[in-house]
Design a binder for these strands. Structure first.
Lengths: 336, 336
DNA sequence: CTGAAAGCGCTTACAG
DNA sequence: CTGAAAGCGCTTACAG
């Protein structure tokens, strides 16, 4: 493995010139830079990571803490993880993964050993143990998700309330006035996560004198979905549209039930899938969707850590605006 | 952040004694070691990661290359990723995640910058670009999955052929003689992955004069599952048992179809779910399952890299024996 | 049983 | 525009 001395010798310059030429940290004569670059290329030189961390002010490493607990939807978590890694690489950062088992201790460890320059926190819950550690460490960090107290923290998240309003707005624009929402399992609304209640509350608040809304939790089984659907129909006998904020299986089961009962989508019932981490294209019909923006969230989280590293702390909460993707599952309600 | 000099001063010893006392790399008087340990604890000392990498022969970092392509089942990938990270941590190793976008270049990069001591390769396909790079780099590495040519490589994988035989053996032991297999989508058998065909071939080879077997690919939609099921019944009109080697949605859809047709499980039809990365407990009935051993695979992959680091290369393929978990979806076939 | 010192490979002030 | 040198914080042969 060629080191900086080898490159300097090959290029006929000093090692400091090699360092500066490759890092761009000071102006170098064009000819010199070219000779250095060629020598580096020919020798397959890559700066030693450990030496760089030790000598420089940056480690070029982020920690990504990605716990996996009962409520975690693995595909969604995976999407965020990949988004963060990809975004980090675009800034020449590598990502060290920290798991549930070593959540707070892992953060302390990577921070105090100066392994990482910054931290990205995934799947934040309302009262998350990791939050206090993040505050205490004072390292650049961005949370994806909202804890109860965001003071002093930088957070990115989908605007779940706006997503609910957007779903309803699209349906009311088509003429719907009776809209049911099939939600997650009940315990998700009681436990630490807050995205589910944020969506639900904004959905219910969208109800007006003209537009009736109703909400029902859903257990992700056949009977659970049947019960949820029946519960919504009981509250809204004239329901012509549904907003789904629940997992992929529930989507499939619901469409199944509708098919059996000859309720056509979108003829008899319009459906919008909201905050979904999966594609809705394989459903019959493909469902209109407000996607969970994993890619945007990951990219933005990385950008915000990079900004903090550049000396602009500016703690704040950034809510990502939802987008509506029209597929084939919404239409005007049938005239009565 | 306290460094080794601070600890040495506090403990009244030299920095080499601190290093040796904490690493255990040479015998230290008990009293001295205790003083050093206390000083380190009180100062919250943690060796600087970069300095350690540079001075030592180890970086205490692994690279985990986890591509996500069309055939990847995200929850399964996530399970392997978490298993590897957890296992690595038990050896005081951190894991840097490499994604699809930077598969081969990422491996070269982390290797030539001496960022990692070893590599774990996930989701290996038959002709995987990363394999040549792994061979070329010569770093300790373990693949989870089997490439076409395993010469010189260390590989861990579930014994998919044994899993197929185990599924069939459990069913024949109950008296079944006509067993259908619902497989993945057709293109998975044509493309790079080899676990799917390994399972299928061993399944079909389990057929004997007494036991008939049939296989059908399955598209993960309602109509796809119906078609697959019909295809199996056509080949095996007396089918009394099924082996599922397909994704979670197909499981749910199949059970749905059976319920509609009043085919009871396991009364009329026994079912075994094979090589599944998800729990089968939430199905009605909970399905007997041969789990995909993500935890074991990850742990074993890490152990094998650690062994290579210790100077025992010993390239070989290690197939993990499948295990059968009885739930409530198999029974003796109804007497005709 | 312990210490003084070399050296790992960089980055970056300090000089010219 | 470039170089010589200090220094980052460790590990580990070398000495005693």
């Amino acid at each position: 493995m060629a080191n900086i001395t080898d490159v300097a010798r090959a290029a006929g310059v000093s090692i400091s010139t090699v360092s500066y030429a490759l890092s761009g940290n000071r102006p170098i004569a064009a000819g010199t830079r070219e000779r250095v670059e060629r020598a580096a290329r020919e020798l397959g030189y890559r700066p030693n990571a450990g030496a760089r961390m030790l000598a420089g002010s940056r480690t070029n490493m982020f920690a990504l803490t990605a716990p996996m607990h009962a409520d975690t939807h693995p595909p969604a978590l995976m999407a965020f993880v990949l988004a963060v890694v990809t975004a980090a690489r675009s800034y020449d950062y590598d990502v060290v993964l920290l798991t549930e088992g070593e959540a707070t201790t892992g953060l302390r460890r990577v921070a105090s050993s100066s392994l990482v320059d910054g931290i990205i926190v995934l799947d934040v819950t309302t009262d998350d143990d990791r939050i206090d550690v993040i505050r205490e460490l004072g390292l650049p960090a961005t949370l994806i998700g909202l804890p109860a107290d965001t003071a002093g923290l930088t957070c990115v998240d989908l605007d779940f309330a706006a997503a609910a309003r957007l779903a309803v707005a699209n349906l009311t624009a088509l003429g719907h006035t009776s809209i049911g929402m099939m939600g997650h399992a009940a315990d998700l609304y009681d436990r630490g996560s807050n995205y589910a209640p944020r969506f639900r509350d904004a959905f219910l608040d969208s109800g007006t004198a003209e537009v009736s809304t109703a909400f029902h939790t859903t257990v992700a089984t056949r009977s659970g979905v049947e019960e949820s659907f029946a519960g919504l129909l009981k509250q809204l006998p004239d329901m012509t549209a549904m907003v789904l904020n629940c997992n992929e299986n529930v989507h499939g089961i619901l469409l199944e039930i509708l098919r059996e009962r000859d309720i056509s989508v979108p003829g008899d019932l319009s459906i919008v899938s909201a905050c979904s981490s999966f594609s809705t294209d394989h459903f019959l019909p493909p469902l209109d969707v407000i996607p969970l923006p994993a890619l945007d969230s990951g990219r933005r989280a990385v950008e915000l850590v990079i900004q903090q590293l550049a000396g602009f702390p500016d703690p704040h909460v950034e809510l990502i605006a939802p987008t509506f993707q029209r597929k084939s599952s919404t239409a005007a309600p049938r005239p009565r």
